[in-house]
Computed example of a mutant assay.
Amino acid sequence: MISVDTAIKIVTDKTEPLQSRAVPFENTMGLCLAQDVQSDIDMPPFDRSAMDGYAIIAEDTAHAPVELTVIESIAAGYMPTKKVSHGQASKIMTGAAVPEGANAVVKFEETEDIQTDNRVKILRSIDKGSNISKKGEDIQIGQTVLYKGMVIRPQEIGILASVGKSYVEVFPTPTIGIISTGSELVDVESKPSVAQIRNSNGYSLAAQARRLKADVEILGIVKDTKEEISGMLQKGLKKDILILSGGVSMGEYDLVGEVMKDLHTQIYFEKVALRPGKPVIFGRKDKTLIFALPGNPVASFVTFELFIYTAIRKMMGFSNPQRITIQATLETDIFVKRKRREYRPALFCARDNTWKVSPVEWHGSADLLATTRANCLLIVREDAQKLAAGQLVDVILLD
């Protein structure tokens, strides 16, 4: 049995980013850049007015108020046709190119129109360069504006559009197959008999993977026979990642590990010092990473967040693929029963200007309902004997 940290390191080391591909930039939200991106233009591409107002020579306002002659009006999208000389001004709109000769823009609110002879009164003096965005002050031609490994958010989409990058190299999301094992399982539409339960794991695991943008196929339910498990497992080897839930403990009908070995799967680990989720298998068959998770739904949920989340993010090119751990103040005492690292469903919130966390009522690894009242996993480390209210503890945020 290996530690959680060792297991996560093995998953990280044995997972490689997928081959990058060129994708239309508007379809890259949430993906990871596989290339640096350079600008093909200066931004702004010219000296640009930051205000609606008048383009003037600042020195003309030294003894304001002063009257100037308006020689033209410049709208955004049009280039000036006249040079501004002393005693003159050009009416200008936000985003328009500043005309030659002008070195400042005065806002409309600081002027008064004079109805005769196309003149304007400037009410106060203004400094040179005021309200002008200089050419290239934000981005210069050839400048690297986005870097390989960055997550693409709405603002990165805007930058890609600004620099004309209509297609961009990104790491794609993996394909994932999900198999639920257990002769006791029936699908959602069926009413379980006394000895049956509905297949919740297949759908919750699929939702966890889809939240990461993965391409998921629920392959179905198989009974606890080597033949059925083997047949469905081999079907799933077309995927980048194959997830099985159930059949990994020590019972007579826990056959998943045996089937994986019969198919000559390279097994990297089979047990982790973890609660919930000790019996978890990770291996590789050909190009496919295989994760066999416990059948209890909270154990399945937790092991996904620790191991499969990490693998998916590594395949997507993220340099820090693990869930983020932060600290919060514990609000209640916790007594530790087992010397395995525990991940307890908990509620994280801000109270009294401090991040607080409290475990929710939880009846063990089969109690999926408890997780609906939680937004984080509270980490109880294996060397702890008791966690006291008021101390800082580590939590993994889920939402």
Rank of each mutant, 00 (worst) to 15 (best):
P17L: 05
F25Y: 15
N27S: 13
M29A: 12
C32D: 07
C32L: 00
S39D: 03
P44N: 01
D47I: 03
D47F: 07
D52N: 15
A55F: 04
E59M: 03
D60S: 00
T61Q: 01
A62K: 15
H63V: 11
A64Q: 04
E67M: 11
M79F: 14
P80A: 03
K82F: 10
K82E: 11
H86M: 10
A89N: 03
K91S: 15
M93N: 08
V98I: 13
P99L: 02
P99S: 02
V105Q: 06
V106T: 10
E112R: 12
Q115Y: 15
N118S: 14
I126E: 01
G129N: 08
I139S: 02
I139Y: 03
I141N: 09
G142E: 01
V145C: 09
G149F: 04
G149N: 02
R153A: 10
I157L: 15
A161P: 10
E169G: 02
V170P: 05
V170E: 04
P174V: 06
I179R: 03
S180D: 05
E184W: 01
S190Y: 11
P192L: 06
S193Q: 12
S193V: 00
Q196K: 11
S200I: 13
S204T: 14
R210D: 09
R211W: 03
D215G: 00
V216I: 05
I221S: 02
K223E: 09
T225L: 05
E228P: 05
L233Y: 00
L233V: 14
K238L: 12
D240V: 03
I241H: 05
S249K: 05
M250L: 15
G251I: 02
Y253N: 12
I267C: 10
F269I: 09
V272T: 09
L274I: 12
P276T: 11
G277K: 09
F282M: 08
N296D: 12
P297T: 04
V298W: 02
S300M: 10
E305K: 10
F307E: 06
I308M: 12
M316L: 07
M316G: 14
F318N: 10
F318Y: 15
R323H: 08
I324L: 15
I324S: 11
L330W: 02
V336F: 04
R340K: 11
P345Q: 01
P345R: 06
P345S: 12
A346H: 04
F348K: 06
C349I: 13
T354I: 00
T354L: 14
W355A: 14
V360F: 10
E361C: 07
H363F: 13
T371P: 07
T372R: 09
R373P: 00
L377A: 02
R381M: 06
L397T: 10
